[in-house]
């Protein structure tokens, strides 16, 4: 693989899964990113906390299946793809962050920060 296309990222343990109540969102700040993390039971999904409409806090929205509804004006997004998921938001899209759940710990893959210790180049699989 071409080195230049590989973004340098790192997996960060952000919480124990019980810190995230089922089907609710919580905010975690990584660097200058405010990320909304959702516990869907068997998996955890993460997206940018900022609604593209008027910056509503998506972590405070209602989760149904794998969608989130913004608490301010009800724009809806797919948590897996980031795609707008109702009539209000079809044209819009939010950033998603890879996440995984392992041994009850929630990890987020975030861009490597300069301050990060234990640097390690990410590998593409």
């Amino acid at each position: 693989m071409n080195q230049a296309t590989i973004e340098e990222t790192v997996w960060i343990a952000i919480a124990r899964s019980q810190d995230l109540p089922l089907r609710e969102g919580r905010v975690v700040v990584l660097g200058d990113q405010e990320i909304a993390v959702f516990n869907l039971g068997d998996r955890v999904l993460a997206v940018s906390n900022h609604c593209p409409h008027r910056n509503g806090p998506l972590a405070d929205g209602i989760v149904s299946g794998a969608t989130i509804v913004c608490p301010l004006h009800a724009w809806k997004f797919n948590l897996e793809t980031g795609q707008g998921a109702n009539a209000l938001s079809t044209e819009h899209c939010i950033e998603t962050f890879p996440s995984r759940l392992s041994d009850g710990i929630v990890f987020l893959e975030a861009p490597r920060q300069s301050t990060t210790k234990n640097e390690m180049p990410a590998m593409s699989g």
Partner: peptide, 12 residues
């Protein structure tokens, strides 16, 4: 808000 526990390295 959630405070990151620590940054960990995981093999993919």
């Amino acid at each position: 808000q959630i405070k990151p526990m620590e940054e960990a390295e995981v093999l993919i």
